Amino acid sequence: MSATLVFAQLLNGLQFGVLLFLLAAGLTLVFGIMSFVNLAHGSLYMMGAYFAASAFQYTGSFGLAVAAAMGGSLLLGLALEFVAVARLYRRDHLDHVLATFGMVLFFNELVRIIWGAQPVFLQVPEFLGGAIDIGGFSYPAYRFAIIVVGLLVAVGSWLLINKTRVGMLIRAGATNPAMVAALGVNIRLLNAMLFGVGAMLAGLAGAMAGPILSVQSGMGESVLITTLVVIVIGGIGSVTGAFYAALIVGIVDTMGRVFLPLMLRQMAERSFADAAGPALASMLVYLLMAMVLAWRPHGLFPANR
């Protein structure tokens, strides 16, 4: 087990973590302020990836593809909020789950109708197609760009939440939304803005993940489950918690998938180790969530603590 391999997987875990953060940042605020269970968040991630792939196919510009993913997901999120989600805020959580699960099925079938059942591939932009040198270690430039984008979004989110009036309202809404509404704040507009921004960040995550994953129907479901684990560990309603939890989950999942099979090979046959290792790595994430909830039931960085 070389130091180069460990360092490479740490960077891969960091890259996976920042992608999870892009998804978790908006979703945790929707949970925390609106108390809305949005299972369709993964579908917005998927739609962002498709928007980016289509824009890149027609323009050849990765920058325009990312802009199309963010803009398209923002508009789609606002449309969903206006047409359906706003009518569900006062309903039971079971209604939220059933309605947004229906949206998941709808969007999965929609992309099959528009783009077909086969995966769509988004190319890595030429200027990020090489590798960068990090202290004598070569790492793919595009994956490093994902890390940079995620960290910039994290810094921007922190400034928005902690240094602006809108952020003050968001933090107050996460703690006591009824009091914020009683003070004359337009909660309807705040909810729509948060839902739209969350959708935009999900679209950005889809666009950034497109070149390293196949863009296909249903791609949002598996990552949504991991995103829910992130916001539970970090604390519902806390962007700071989502950031740190996303990095922890990304590194734990990535390191586990790489090194657990290597460790099991010392004790069992290679075929068994290669099959059991990734499964045990997936379990590590949920075990981590269980440990955090046993120690801090409200998460590591709850919004109202």
Rank of each mutant, 00 (worst) to 15 (best):
L204E: 09
A205F: 03
A205M: 06
G206F: 03
A207N: 08
A207Q: 09
P211Y: 10
P211Q: 11
P211I: 11
I212K: 05
L213P: 01
S214Q: 15
S214D: 13
V215D: 02
V215E: 02
V215I: 10
Q216L: 10
Q216I: 02
Q216M: 12
G218L: 08
M219R: 08
M219Q: 10
E221K: 07
V223F: 00
L224R: 00
I225H: 07
I225P: 04
T226D: 10
T226A: 13
T226E: 11
T227A: 14
T227C: 15
T227M: 14
T227I: 01
L228G: 03
V229Y: 01
V230F: 04
I231V: 14
V232S: 08
V232H: 01
V232I: 14
G234C: 04
G235T: 03
G235Y: 05
G235L: 02
I236R: 07
G237N: 09
G237Q: 12
G237C: 12
G237Y: 07
S238A: 10
S238V: 09
V239K: 02
G241C: 12
G241D: 10
G241I: 08
G241M: 11
F243L: 15
F243Q: 02
A245F: 08
A245D: 07
A246L: 03
A246R: 03
A246W: 00
L247A: 11
L247P: 06
I248A: 14
I248T: 13
I248N: 05
I248K: 08
V249E: 09
V249W: 05
V249I: 15
V249G: 08
G250A: 03
G250K: 01
G250I: 06
I251Y: 10
I251R: 12
D253W: 12
D253E: 15
M255L: 15
M255W: 12
G256S: 14
R257C: 00
